[in-house]
Design a binder for these strands. Structure first.
Lengths: 234, 234
DNA sequence: GTCCGGCATTGATCTACATCAACGAAGCGA
DNA sequence: TCGCTTCGTTGATGTAGATCAATGCCGGAC
């Protein structure tokens, strides 16, 4: 289960820590290889670990009392899984499910909270993670409140293709089912929205989408950097 | 403009700081009395100050490219106004508008970023603020994706009345216009949703709402502590 | 006082989206 | 291999909620 130490040295979460303290923290931590479908925790539970995604990804899902489940966010490496719940010691508001074969770093919640208080460098990393996650949610709320389902779909495709570095193609990263719920609609509506975008140069081939003119599509769907988050990582 | 120091000593943001450092920070800060309607900053701008709300409140609004404007969040004292943008040095995703006569503490963004890095106690306060704001947004996304407009309205009333300590009455804190956009609907839909809730014991009298049985209303609207945030503050 | 512009309510209508249903395709365990 | 479920698409239909429009209301300007 224990992966090579090398990865952990380069984790932004831990880099910058005095190496004595880092060893200390890692002594209380475990690296886990986790299979897709694994539930890390459920909404309503109290945090017992701070999970960090080293490779792979985790889906954060919200569930209504009637059992409907929607995708709220995706955690990609290197990032923490809902530090907001761990540092405040409050119950999780979402379920976390592993989406693909992944490697996680697990640190006991109490140990992590302690370390955040005593290690300024670690606190900085937590602040950066929280700030990024907050901004992603703000964008999502604006997306939901200000745009139609078709616009959300089109902008999603443009943002996806740019992030993948292929201006004329976007490959959907997981089932359309989930993407639809992430965008706040049903899978049927998502399917129809994709068809409707054909007039704007969109072609669907299974899970890969061809885009004739990304700029044109973006303009048609009112692409907005303040919503779609196309600022480049440093 | 300079308010009594007493307030600032008790501000959670600064309490716990060594008093020398606190004086240092406050030497670079200003307390401002601000009139309703004042725009602190606009979406797209770079942060120049970290604003902290001492009294009153600030509305965070999102605007689409076509000019439609919706309420995303309300900042109430004692809290920071979008620390996520200030600490990351990224453009604001929302406009901030003062909602009522308020007193703000302004700290230059660069100074604040510096202080967060050198003062672990301040970093802790920022983490707490970011975590709370993140969790509020998660609840809002779940609210938008999992509930109907009528359910959102009913749960909003129940949560409001509980927070105000009056189980049989809720007083709307600002114009129905804004509340509607906060809940992700038009003012007309909000008005109709209120009417529709009459069968569940809701009576509208201007901006005060009477609630016959809060528990009954909550059950009818699928009130959920993981969405409506009724955990008590410490 | 009068005029006015923003807010709220209500009705009529429209439409975006959900729901229900039927179907084929693909994954998966027995 | 055979079912069996889940996924995705498409069609038919229903409905929640937006839009458009008319009216009343209140608060401010003058």
């Amino acid at each position: 289960m224990q992966g090579p130490e090398l990865d952990l040295e380069h984790l932004p979460l831990l880099s910058g820590l005095p190496s004595a303290r880092r060893k200390d923290l890692l002594a209380n931590a475990v690296v886990h290889a986790v299979a897709p479908g694994t539930i890390l925790f459920d909404q309503g539970e109290m945090p017992t670990f701070q999970h960090a995604v080293l490779t792979g990804s985790a889906h954060l899902l919200g569930r209504s009392s009637e059992g409907r489940e929607v995708l709220i966010e995706v955690v990609e490496p290197p990032d923490l899984v809902i530090p907001a719940a761990v540092v405040t010691g409050s119950p999780y508001l979402m379920r976390a499910r592993i989406a693909e074969p992944s490697r996680l770093l697990l640190i006991r919640a109490g140990v992590f909270r302690q370390a955040v208080q005593t290690e300024p460098q670690l606190a900085q990393a937590v602040i950066a993670s929280l700030a990024g996650q907050f901004r992603r949610l703000v964008r999502q709320v604006k997306n939901l409140k200000l745009r139609t389902a078709a616009e959300r779909t089109g902008c999603y495709l443009v943002a996806l293709s740019r992030r993948q570095g292929t201006p004329h193609r976007a490959v959907l990263p997981y089932e359309k089912n989930l993407i639809a719920s992430e965008l706040g609609m049903t899978r049927e509506s998502f399917s129809r929205a994709l068809s409707a975008l054909r007039v704007h140069g969109v072609t669907v081939q299974g899970d890969t989408i061809l885009i004739r003119d990304s700029n044109l599509l973006g303009r048609a769907c009112h692409l907005d950097p303040l919503i779609d988050g196309l600022e480049m990582p440093p």
